[in-house]
Design a protein around this nucleic acid. Structure first.
Lengths: 288, 288
DNA sequence: TCGCGTTACGAGGGTCGTAAAAATT
DNA sequence: AATTTTTACGACCCTCGTAACGCGA
């Protein structure tokens, strides 16, 4: 198993294309093909189907390991890089749904102290920025049981600080039979059709301890604005889950508190342990 | 950063010798030297001092990342290897202090069902056996706050099952001024001299949230039997921490309950998620 | 002097790009 | 036919072992 092959494989898996991966890594298509072939030979299994390019079962497993390994190695490189003497300019990568009121408060409390560059990105890219040293901190969010860290990366790789936890609401079209409930169990919605919004990180499939949501027939919303998601619910294209702090009123949409399982939407400020000094003002503003 | 170089570096860091690492990896000394030199050049930092061979600060950080990365890659390889149709022979690696009463109970409940090979090893080697596929399960132990998993490897790499949790006792020589206490705070023993027993995994430095214990002047006991440790305490060579289930009576030694911080000794049964079927009888016996 | 790590150098192997072929839509 | 992946092949580079060297005990 070779790291360059692994990196190439991860890029192919992520982009779904040999050609795109080649462009991203500045290789030729040919080299990408050879990398994947060599990797498959070395593990003795097909990792990808071709036309269309998709991960096999073995490929899914290896891709997961590869992401963790490559991220950690990026972190290692960044930690070992001769750290510049803490620029007074701080880059913070934020997920779209992580950027809630408490984060704005935090930044407001800091204004004047340092120049902050705010960089909204999907969660995976936030992590990559952090690992590559292109951002000093990130604001990540996810659904967890209360007081549990979100499953971002392996513990030990990142230092974490709690920013906020909020209860969740289930968004239903007003005409839905359960729209009038005072509270809902996710279990009672087992067969419901959910909108799949990967950028918004509020997927019921991400709820700890919840059975996988069927993927067939789901509408996939690749946008990152909450209003768009709400609009889809209003038009009865599926249900959605949202933290209370991100709710927007919309006619024809009911937001019923999620009663069970007992989970919350959690926002965390994370950074590399070795870069604690650069992030100190942020952390101080958070705790102060 | 190259994986072979990383593997070589880890071996040098672990063995403390270029020559030993070369022997272990079937390289020449020369190749090991070149690997380390290339790695140091690529990260731009010295990772090891020579004569004596020891990790620099940067080396410590990289070695930690390297261990995680290499372990995960071993796990990936094992998971992808064409799994043999579950032999009716199960290898279980156990740490010396993990092998307590409840584990013996577990094995007793299983006797007759399958042939079990029990393999006592230091914790790091247990993990290696598991990752390499040479053991189907491992019994690991460590000190944690109650209901928290022990810090063995990254979550997601291993599937875990709670076997037992036990309170801890502080072992003091009978003449010690605190030997008569009903309960002790670790904070009140900040300046005490502890016996360093790496194989017994009950080091106060391993207690979550506890400040590092000074390493100077500590006696290091490299054995793995509890009786030996107790004997050292009796002879006033230092204090020790032990779970109640492992206590042995010894004249001149008092075992005072640890009152604070609120931590326990926890034993877990772990295995690779992809190998759940092979371990099923064990897990069933555990829960049944 | 002995043990251990480093450096010089060359053979061998591996990797990537070019280019042509094959396969799928 | 166009697009995408695979294969063939060769130049280049990199890696490892041999062997000589440096350095400290």
């Amino acid at each position: 198993m070779d790291l360059r092959q692994l990196r190439t494989f991860e890029a192919v898996a992520r982009t779904g294309s040999f050609t795109a991966a080649a462009a991203e890594l500045a290789y030729t298509q040919s080299a990408v093909s050879q990398h994947v072939a060599a990797l498959e030979a070395s593990v003795g299994r097909r990792l990808l189907t071709r036309r269309p390019v998709a991960l096999t079962e073995a490929g899914v497993r290896l891709a997961s390991h590869a992401r963790h390994v490559l991220l950690r190695l990026d972190v290692a490189r960044t930690e070992l890089a001769a750290q510049a003497p803490a620029p007074d300019r701080l880059t913070v990568a934020v997920t779209p749904t992580g950027f809630t009121g408490p984060v704005a408060d935090l930044l407001a409390r800091l204004s004047g102290t340092a120049v902050i560059r705010l960089l909204p990105l999907p969660a995976a890219d936030c992590l990559r920025q952090l690992a590559a040293g292109d951002a000093e901190a990130a604001v990540l969010d996810g659904i967890t049981t209360a007081n549990q860290p979100i499953a971002a990366a392996e513990p030990g790789v990142l230092a974490r600080h709690l920013v906020a936890e909020q209860p969740l609401r289930v968004l239903l079209p007003a005409g839905h039979p359960l729209a009038g409930s005072a509270g809902l169990d996710l279990a009672s919605l087992r067969d419901a059709r959910w909108v799949d919004a990967p950028l918004l990180r509020c997927d019921p499939a991400a709820v700890p301890g919840h059975p996988p949501v069927p993927t067939s027939g789901r509408l996939r919303y690749e946008g990152d604005d909450v209003a768009g998601l709400v609009r889809l619910v209003a038009h009865q294209l599926g249900l959605a889950l949202l933290p209370e702090g991100l709710l927007v009123d919309h006619p024809g949409v009911a937001a019923v508190p999620l009663r069970s399982p007992a989970v919350v939407h959690r926002v965390e400020l994370v950074h590399l342990p070795g870069r604690a000094d650069a992030v100190r003002p942020l952390v101080a503003a958070l705790h102060g």
